[in-house]
Design a protein around this nucleic acid. Sequence first.
DNA 1: AATGAATGAGCCTTCATTCAT
DNA 2: AATGAATGAAGGCTCATTCAT
Lengths: 218, 218, 218, 218
Amino acid sequence: MKDTHKSKSNQSPARREPTQARARRTRQLIFETALRILDQEGEPALTTNRIAELSGFSIGTVYQYFANKHEILANLIAEERRMRLARIAAELQGLSQDERTTVQLAERVRAILRIVLGAFGGRHKARRALLERALRNSAGRLMNEPAAEIARMLRALSYGSENQTPLTEIEALVLAEAVSGTVRAALLSNPSLLKSAAFEQALFDLTVGFLRQRRTPA
Amino acid sequence: MKDTHKSKSNQSPARREPTQARARRTRQLIFETALRILDQEGEPALTTNRIAELSGFSIGTVYQYFANKHEILANLIAEERRMRLARIAAELQGLSQDERTTVQLAERVRAILRIVLGAFGGRHKARRALLERALRNSAGRLMNEPAAEIARMLRALSYGSENQTPLTEIEALVLAEAVSGTVRAALLSNPSLLKSAAFEQALFDLTVGFLRQRRTPA
Amino acid sequence: MKDTHKSKSNQSPARREPTQARARRTRQLIFETALRILDQEGEPALTTNRIAELSGFSIGTVYQYFANKHEILANLIAEERRMRLARIAAELQGLSQDERTTVQLAERVRAILRIVLGAFGGRHKARRALLERALRNSAGRLMNEPAAEIARMLRALSYGSENQTPLTEIEALVLAEAVSGTVRAALLSNPSLLKSAAFEQALFDLTVGFLRQRRTPA
Amino acid sequence: MKDTHKSKSNQSPARREPTQARARRTRQLIFETALRILDQEGEPALTTNRIAELSGFSIGTVYQYFANKHEILANLIAEERRMRLARIAAELQGLSQDERTTVQLAERVRAILRIVLGAFGGRHKARRALLERALRNSAGRLMNEPAAEIARMLRALSYGSENQTPLTEIEALVLAEAVSGTVRAALLSNPSLLKSAAFEQALFDLTVGFLRQRRTPA
DNA sequence: AATGAATGAGCCTTCATTCAT
DNA sequence: AATGAATGAAGGCTCATTCAT
């Protein structure tokens, strides 16, 4: 064993397990402060000192809960994603309740798109910054991205509807990326597009068109 | 006191027009060093000091050719885009030579996709960093981005083919973003996809499917 | 990219109100180090790094207490002025206690001159540098300068003494500048003059001569 | 001056004796460019590179004529002073032509003040910067300053007029500094004062008052 | 004589992180 | 648990000066 180096590190992944109620709340507050800064002041302003200052806790306390800045960000991204997916999943519940055979492909796609688009409301600036950062660090981890979730949904959709052949992995990926890439681009360039009917219709045509085209390899 | 380091500006946009042969070469070398760093070490490593160090020139020399770090990056991005678009445009020449009436939509799409996909070779990491940066600063300027070029091409394509109605702006944007977003995602997560036939086929289905679907608003 | 180092400002005027004992002491130490450098090494040597080095604190600590170099200098100047004026004001107390009608113009002038001259002791070099800097930035704000204080005093003096007509603003300014300019020059060229009787006598003649002459526009 | 740079300076005092006509002109042009920068862009902008750029000569050429930046400045100050004094001296010629016994002290003072005040026209900004720099480096060399010239004149004046006793050195110094200090202050804070009659009158009262008071040691 | 590309010490400033209390 | 003073590596950038051509 090369254990020469004293590693205080056996506490690293989560600096401290927030068992106490107060601790948990502190952690949450730090967390929300970070998100608020991202929202209101942009990514460059997201410094550990600023988080401390704005959260009301000392910088020391911040480091009691997060090993380093990266961990704060990682958690932020994870949380954000979790929340969005939770929202989508919840709404998909209602959809699958409705899962009679008569439900058409078109209707399903429309419902899903509406849910996905609806999931991008609210704190745009924070979200944008988060997306960028996720993007920056996401090399090779595409399938962990939100797009992957959409892919899964679309794939599930491709069973038992008028579109028989299940999507291949690449097809699901392409479709998912096409949709989420478009949404991301709209988010970055012109967020109001997300609420426009024409935009939704185009996404609809994109999705349905793809699903139909692949059956008809003309 | 900033007293010592002041303005004197008015020579800013191009710090010094390299008329001398040596100067031109130096500028080029600095430039390529920056690109190399981006490629091999990633964006955070792209510091002016690193550029100086790796290029073999002093930091002062770097600043003789670029007013500030931002200018280096801006040039890098512009250059990159220019080269890619030049490549695409050049290849499109060949395509339009061939522009008989009998050319089918499908063939055209395929040709264009091949060109677009072909335009992404080489220095992946640099490209990725560049893309991110372009992305980061592109808020609201989407139509100036590479995607816009693709949009234009697709739009041109929608005239005089079996697909009569020209694409609306939003449609062109969505289709272009869908394609380039997918390519970007592939680039980031799994560059080898760019050469796979299945990937190309999926993109083809996406594009043609969309173009057909929008005519048939079923 | 300045991306990394951004605003976050809104804490600027006083970077951190030193509530803790240690903090207060540190701030004071940094402050005094700056003054010492000004004294012993001159203004050009007053760099933030030198302050850090000589104070024994890290550069980071210096910036914990002063937002930027300018703030250090501004504080230095303000402090200097405050101290000198406080000293003058305090001593003027004693003078005005004595305010019998019989007190002659001559005696008053002499008393004031003595106070003013006495206020320039101690750290000459620092003072000189400070004066220069104050001078450099004082354009158009002459009446806020120490000379203005003297002007006020002289003006007050011109009431209720043998010299009836109150000084006009320009007259007060000229007299004050004449005195303080002379003192400044002496300070710069030959500080020992400040303690010489002949120098004081000449200043006395200058002041009283002026006050008398203006009544007698011969 | 950053004394860091190794000075092979044994060629320093005058880098090259401008014997040729062209050389002399080049030197003059560099010179005037420096003055222009000082005037129009302020002292911080006065860098050797800026001088080169604006003069049209290369930086190398500038260093052919001046060993270092300090030399440029020193020459600038010397030149400035020389010119002002020359102007004053020239005008004093006319005055002394007129030197009949009947000429009164008052008239003489007035004439001199007018000349002195007249010498401060034109390039205020440059002058101010120059003054500051002269000030900064003038420690202990007061008697070389313009004030000294004025002192000499005043002293000459004190002979053969109604004011018999010649001024002592200290008296001359005080009077000269009083006048030139006031002028300097006016220059820095409110240049238009220099042309005001009230200002001139106050200076007159200051001077004549002093000269009379010292005879009458009341 | 003149050029101007190149140099590099050094300036100001930021911010993630540590540690004594 | 929490504090916050202190740290210092690192970044962007300037400018007086040199030297090969």
